[in-house]
Amino acid sequence: MQVLLAVGFVVCWSSGFIGAKLGAGSAGAVTILMWRFLPLAALLGLAALTVTRASWRGLTARDLLRQAAVGLLSQSGYLLTVYYAIQLGVSSGTTALVDGTQPLVAGALAGPLLRQYVSARQWLGLCLGVAGVVLVTTADATATASAGVRPWAYGVPFIGMLSLVAATFVEGRSRTRTAPSVAMTVHCATSAVVFTALALATGAAAPPADPDFWLAISWLIGLATFGGYGLYWLVLRRYGITRVNALMFLMAPVTAVWGALMFHEPFGPRTAAGLAIGLAAVAVVATAPAHSGDPAGRQRSVSRSPR
């Protein structure tokens, strides 16, 4: 059962990057994100009025505003950069690898920002993770240079990753435990408002007639959001944040292979080596002995939207 949950989580979460690539061929990032979150916000809003009403009791306006801020960072800001990077030609595997370094970066920053203990092993893991990202990114940039992908496009996913890190710290400062159903509803409603406003302001609200667009939207809602998000919380509650963070590093190789097979994205020896270094990074951190002040053992998980 544990293996099936882990496999399902990795596949569904990775499908978000593939869905973004699938939609990029028929519409811009803002259009895709608007039509992804409008139906989600409507469905979850209806569920909040009926099925999950009890989960909202006792929450204050401050709690909801904090969740809106977390959603703005971990979902709206992050996904916009991911989709825009893929639209610019950055491979889905490279984008997934940058995303996967978020637990390491958050753990490393916990020391200077929150005055928490950060072990030498965690710093080693972070350095390995960064090395893997650099190797894969440079390999991807070399392979796509002839396609006109500009070098600065590879900095876009890093902005999104830092947005996730910021969301982790905002969530970590909250003393109120928010039910996953409430967090998901607030995050999706926030994103629906943000992306609808952006789409209307830029004249990108009208969906294209291309059937591939609606296939991508269905893919993102069904597989990435409900499948990935649901399994994320199930694995988190059963096996803890350390296991979830370890599985996050499997997203990059799975996405890279998936993207190579489905979209013929570059996957050469340098890419494989960079992904292997990334996996080694999480192995170093995941096998570190527990410490009473170690943020890896008690860091609260931010509610993240599958890609």
Rank of each mutant, 00 (worst) to 15 (best):
T242D: 12
T242R: 15
T242K: 15
T242G: 13
T242N: 14
T242V: 15
R243D: 11
R243N: 15
R243C: 12
R243P: 06
V244G: 00
V244C: 07
V244W: 01
V244M: 04
V244I: 10
V244T: 11
N245T: 13
N245S: 14
N245M: 10
A246N: 12
A246S: 13
A246C: 12
A246Y: 10
A246M: 14
L247P: 02
L247S: 04
L247M: 13
L247F: 06
M248W: 08
M248S: 10
M248K: 10
F249N: 06
F249E: 02
F249H: 12
F249C: 09
L250G: 06
L250I: 09
L250Q: 09
L250R: 03
M251Q: 15
A252K: 01
P253N: 08
P253L: 02
P253S: 03
P253W: 03
V254L: 10
V254S: 00
V254D: 02
V254W: 00
T255G: 01
T255M: 05
T255E: 01
T255A: 09
T255W: 02
T255V: 11
T255Q: 03
A256T: 09
A256M: 05
V257N: 09
V257R: 07
V257I: 15
V257T: 10
V257K: 07
W258G: 10
W258R: 07
W258T: 14
W258K: 07
G259P: 00
G259K: 02
G259R: 03
G259W: 00
G259F: 03
G259I: 04
A260E: 05
A260P: 06
A260V: 09
L261G: 09
L261F: 11
L261H: 07
L261K: 11
L261V: 13
M262N: 12
M262K: 14
M262G: 11
M262H: 13
F263W: 03
F263M: 05
F263Q: 02
F263P: 00
F263D: 01
H264K: 14
H264N: 14
H264D: 14
H264V: 10
E265A: 05
E265N: 05
E265S: 04
E265T: 01
E265W: 04
E265Q: 07
E265P: 07
P266Q: 05
P266C: 06
P266T: 07
F267S: 00
F267L: 13
F267W: 08
F267N: 01
G268Q: 06
P269S: 15
P269G: 15
R270C: 10
R270G: 08
T271V: 12
T271M: 11
T271K: 04
A272W: 09
A273L: 13
A273C: 12
G274V: 02
G274Q: 03
G274C: 05
L275Y: 04
L275M: 08
L275S: 06
L275D: 04
A276S: 13
A276I: 11
A276P: 07
A276R: 11
I277A: 05
I277K: 00
I277D: 02
G278F: 04
G278S: 10
G278C: 06
G278I: 02
G278R: 03
G278H: 03
G278L: 05
L279A: 08
L279S: 05
L279I: 11
L279E: 04
L279Y: 06
L279R: 01
L279V: 12
L279P: 06
A280Q: 07
A280T: 13
A280E: 12
A280S: 14
A281T: 10
A281V: 08
A281M: 08
